[in-house]
């Protein structure tokens, strides 16, 4: 009799357990189905970087001395969503601002930020982040270098790019690439003498054969530029006005052809008579 009642209670307990297990499985299934819906996929919190709740100043105030650990936490949080960053997500720049406020000597977020943020066409945010890094890390050549690169290619402001690249050049440990980039941008902006001096130095001192070859190419290119400039001067003296284009020099026999260097750069004269390097790309 006792065995029977014991068996009954065991069966009842097992039944209760099964009911709860069934209920929990059912709830899990509903959750899984709703998580796979297109609407849920659009707002997937695991893929999207959530906007930070606090400002950099507030995060710093409540860090209670655990600044680096909090910066690391934010960094891990930021890069886990790297694959899902979209142009309209402003949280990336905000998050980088928080990380660099908590740990201003953490170099990598500045570099990643300088490279990533321009894709959202926010060059002002890049400049602000880069300048913050240049000030916080006075020995880092990488931050001014990458900021200079982005200002040249994305910001299209060669003067500003040169300013940052020169800061990178003044800082120790920088590779020959920094001087090479300054020389190339100087040539593009018409600072031929400064460019020639830098390329000459790179050609004479650089151990890297690729850079040495590039320096040689640029020195030859600068020679060509000098020659064209002389021809433009001669044209002006003879004709009494500046040539409108490279075609004027070609038609009147001042040049035998539009010179083209090994790196597929073509030189041209702008309508106001200035000499410019125009990149045409591979011919």
């Amino acid at each position: 009799m006792r065995t029977l009642s014991l068996n009954r209670s065991v069966v009842a307990s097992v039944l209760v357990l099964l009911v709860f297990l069934f209920l929990s499985s059912w709830a899990q299934q509903i959750f899984d189905v709703s998580a796979q819906s297109p609407a849920a996929a659009k707002k997937n919190i695991f893929l999207d970087l959530q906007p930070p709740l606090l400002s950099p100043g507030a995060e710093k105030n409540i860090s209670f001395g655990f600044d680096n650990a909090l910066a690391d936490w934010n960094w891990i949080d930021l890069i886990q969503t790297l694959h899902a960053w979209r142009g309209d997500n402003r949280s990336v720049a905000k998050k980088l601002d928080i990380i660099t406020a908590l740990d201003p000597r953490f170099e990598y977020p500045y570099i990643i930020g300088i490279f990533i943020v321009p894709f959202y066409d926010r060059i002002d945010e890049v400049r602000a982040l880069g300048l913050k890094g240049i000030e916080a890390l006075p020995n880092s050549w990488k931050i001014p270098f990458y900021l200079g690169v982005q200002m040249s290619y994305k910001g299209n402001d060669q003067e500003e790019a040169l300013r940052y690249l020169n800061i990178a050049k003044e800082r120790g440990g920088n590779p020959g690439l920094v001087s090479a980039l300054i020389a190339a941008i100087s040539a593009k902006t018409g600072k031929y003498e400064a460019s020639r001096a830098l390329w000459q130095k790179i050609y004479e001192t650089e151990q890297d054969q690729t850079l040495k070859k590039a320096a040689q190419g640029w020195l030859e290119r600068l020679d060509v530029l000098e020659r064209i400039k002389q021809e433009i001067g001669l044209y002006y003296k003879t004709v009494g006005k500046m040539p409108a284009s490279m075609n004027d020099l070609l038609q009147k026999g001042y040049l035998k052809g539009v010179p083209e260097d090994m790196l597929q750069y073509t030189y041209a004269i702008t309508p106001d008579g200035n000499l410019e390097i125009i990149k045409l790309g591979p011919q």
Partner: peptide, 10 residues
């Protein structure tokens, strides 16, 4: 290992 090469610092 999931910190983009910042493991020493982390």
């Amino acid at each position: 290992s999931i910190s983009l090469d910042q493991d020493a610092k982390i």
